[in-house]
Nucleic acid binder design. Structure first.
Lengths: 216, 216
DNA sequence: TAGATTGTTAATCGATTAACAATC
DNA sequence: TAGATTGTTAATCGATTAACAATC
């Protein structure tokens, strides 16, 4: 991890896919790989792969290629997956429960400290060993535990209030599943939006206009 | 809906957000709006808004602006939201149940005809009035009902088999929540991927490298 | 050494933003 | 009419791809 000037989001959003493919190669017992070979497997351009990794340093060997396991480890370090940022999930509906397993099971940089909901049936239960608390306790919990990240899985009508509470307690990064525009409201927040409706509408467009091809 | 040459995915992925904001304006009783005003509210560039809509025709009036409700309707038509493409959801876990409501409740271009799972507890039940069938019946169902789109919410280990089955029955568009690479496997398929892990890792990167700012 | 493949610069391509004439 | 704002062309900016010298 050497250079590090100003990495574009385009590059960053490709890193998780590299990480995944490198893990797959490793599990297949492949020890080294050239950018050309990796590009062919991933359906991308070899120049792009070399450019992308060179944003962070020199990880290859001329005439030889890249060591799969070292490149995978490095990619994980660049992404920061060795961290255990304290996180909370707000909203324990189907979506909240679904993403709970993403945050807590996989080793993806986070540690899930609590889930918050307003349903008496859910409060006091556990989801993947993580306790579900009353959302009324969210503020006290955040002031005490200082989570770094919050996943927002509540109805739109509640999103603004929840975001305000979290922000006022010092939470500055959000995994946002609502259409509430946290990034516009708090310009210093780091917001990763997952807009399922937008994705579904995009799919609808592409079905309705099949001349388009491009994917990702 | 006039021109229509070759619209870039960048433009298309912005349409759902326009649609949402226009709906919001309409519900606030705002009748007309200029690209400048809309741009300020959305945090984007006014030129971009005019360029984007002009891909599809001329919807404004010089010196005046755009009629909110007409522009919203038009955007919905462009996206194809008036359709009711027959769809199935495969996998009735938390994620499958969460997206079921997105497909069936909202008027977003699809009609959800069935949900498939392998759990005896779930087979025979209903989720938002949509029946849950045995995944063993998926092939017969698809041959009979000819769904256009399938949402894939199964574990990675099952994804390849499910995709093969669906493709062989004629399904060519997929809302894919797994990391199985349908688009690489079937080059004529329309695939909209939702990679929650990738999104989470990107968030982890941005928390670990706070010098970066850009969002969306 | 010869062959292969990186790291990196240069060329191309596409997307965003600015400018302005057309026109309501 | 004058002022405002579109539709559209031109300029800028950034991202992708190609080329190739460095070097293992």
């Amino acid at each position: 991890m050497a250079k590090r000037e100003k990495i574009s989001m385009s590059v960053i959003r490709r890193l998780p896919r590299y990480y995944r493919f490198l893990g797959l190669l490793e599990s297949h017992g492949i020890v080294r790989i050239s950018s050309k070979d990796l590009a062919a497997r991933m359906g991308v351009n070899a120049s792009q792969i070399r450019q992308d990794f060179n944003c962070f340093g020199e990880f290859g060997q001329q005439g030889y290629g890249y060591m799969v396991s070292r490149l995978r480890e490095t990619t994980g370090e660049i992404l920061g997956l060795h961290n255990a940022y304290k996180a909370v999930v707000v909203g324990a509906g189907n979506l909240g429960r679904a993403i709970t397993s993403h945050i807590s099971f996989e080793r993806h940089g986070f540690f899930l400290a609590g889930i918050f909901d307003n349903s008496p049936q859910k409060i006091g239960t556990f989801i993947h060993d993580v306790p579900v608390f009353d959302v009324a306790e969210l503020e006290a919990f955040c002031k005490r535990e200082k989570p770094v990240m919050a996943a927002i899985c509540v109805p739109l009508s509640a999103a603004g209030r929840i975001a305000d509470t979290l922000y006022s307690c010092g939470v500055r990064s959000f995994w946002n599943f609502t259409h509430y525009d946290i990034a516009m409201e708090y310009s210093d927040a780091i917001v990763e939006n997952v807009h399922l409706n937008d994705s579904l509408m995009t799919l609808c467009y592409r079905i309705s206009n099949p001349e388009q091809k491009a994917s990702l």
